[in-house]
């Protein structure tokens, strides 16, 4: 455990030091890359609650990422064009305030996760993987055919949304905001894993029958975890859309669900910092290999294959050894 703690600290220091260096040497693009890594990490931290602690292999987490993205896109586009949104006879003003957008993103993705979770958790194993994938595809095709909000082309927002006291268009300030959210969520995640709820969820993953015998309700535990997981990924989606000032149906695509899962696997399933390590490595590889060759996905594929076949526990597991406490391993 001590090595894992040291590794976690090293990852955090790197996450702060690199953008700080980039800011001083005036390389805004590196800051943008780091922001991208932080946001992807946040999405993966969300998924890791369902996948790592809860043992639910959701292959449709892009749903929540996309809902977060579209919450931002739709609200901001209405604010941008000064036209209120007409919804069931109500007239809702758009907004450029990040706080409001985040709230909407979190609430909507939590609601979606509640409905999808209620329906999907009736199944297990492969059927669960496939039904979550199917819900992902449902949202994907819906967003493509939803012409009012750009359809296949997506929605562009001209100016990044505002946060009180910050100029979010300055790369380092937006990075700091995203990092702060990631740290809060990581702290929450660490607390959650050690809380009675987290321990019960862990037990329900490792042995549902025993958990039930001692009076726990695995179904309800999983559903709550699934909703929390979806809400966090939804928040990441809103941040991601704001980073790019653009949303499109690709945020709902199943490849994106796959990529979020890949981040966790590269980093280490069920490890607190696994998703963060995975996201940093992923973004770095994407940038470095993407600059060398157009076909960098071949190397990503090969790396992923090697991790799955030979390095269970991902990078964190490789460096820090077997897990000592809660949240390690998966079933």
């Amino acid at each position: 455990m001590r090595r894992e703690a040291a590794l976690n600290a090293a990852i955090l220091v790197a996450l702060i030091a690199v953008p700080a260096w980039a800011h001083l040497s005036d390389e805004p693009f590196t800051i943008t890359l780091a922001t991208r890594a932080v946001i992807l990490a946040l999405a993966a931290v969300g998924l890791n609650i369902a996948l790592g602690i809860g043992g639910m292999v959701s292959f449709g987490h892009a749903v929540y990422f996309g809902i977060g993205g579209y919450a931002m896109g739709i609200l901001a586009s209405h604010a941008q064009s000064y036209t209120p949104m007409e919804l069931f006879g109500l007239s809702i003003e758009g907004t450029k305030s990040m706080l409001v957008i985040w709230l909407v993103a979190v609430v909507l993705s939590a609601l979606a996760a509640l409905v999808i979770g209620l329906l999907s958790l009736r199944t297990s194993g492969v059927y669960f993987i496939m039904i979550t994938l199917a819900f992902g595809q449902m949202f994907f095709f819906f967003s493509i055919s939803w012409a009012a909000y750009g359809g296949e082309d997506g929605l562009s927002i001209y100016v990044r949304n505002g946060f009180p006291g910050l100029n979010t268009l300055v790369p380092i300030q937006y990075f700091g905001l995203c990092l702060a959210i990631l740290l809060v969520v990581l702290w929450f995640n660490a607390r959650l894993a050690r809380s009675p709820f987290g321990l019960a969820l862990n037990a329900a993953r490792q042995s549902p029958a025993r958990a039930e015998t001692v009076g726990l309700n695995p179904m309800r535990l999983r559903l709550v975890a699934f909703v929390i997981s979806g809400a966090i990924t939804g928040l990441a989606g809103a941040l991601f859309a704001d980073l790019n000032r653009f949303v499109s149906p690709t945020m709902f695509s199943w490849q994106l669900s796959g990529e979020i899962t890949v981040l966790i696997i590269i980093g280490g399933v069920g490890r607190l910092m696994g998703p963060v390590a995975g996201a940093v490595v992923f973004v770095a590889l994407e940038h470095l290999l993407g600059g060398l060759t157009e076909f960098w996905h071949i190397y990503l594929g090969a790396a992923l294959l090697l991790v799955v076949l030979f390095a269970r526990g991902g990078l964190v597991g490789l460096i820090a050894g077997r897990p000592g406490g809660g949240g390690g391993g998966h079933g």
Binding site: I129, V262, I265, W296, H297, I298, L304, L305, V308
Partner: peptide, 24 residues
Amino acid sequence: DKDHLDQVLATFALILIFSEGTRW
């Protein structure tokens, strides 16, 4: 003998390799 998650990811990796290889 691995779990479904590993199978999904390993074969996802194969997709990346095959698709980019064919594009190459």
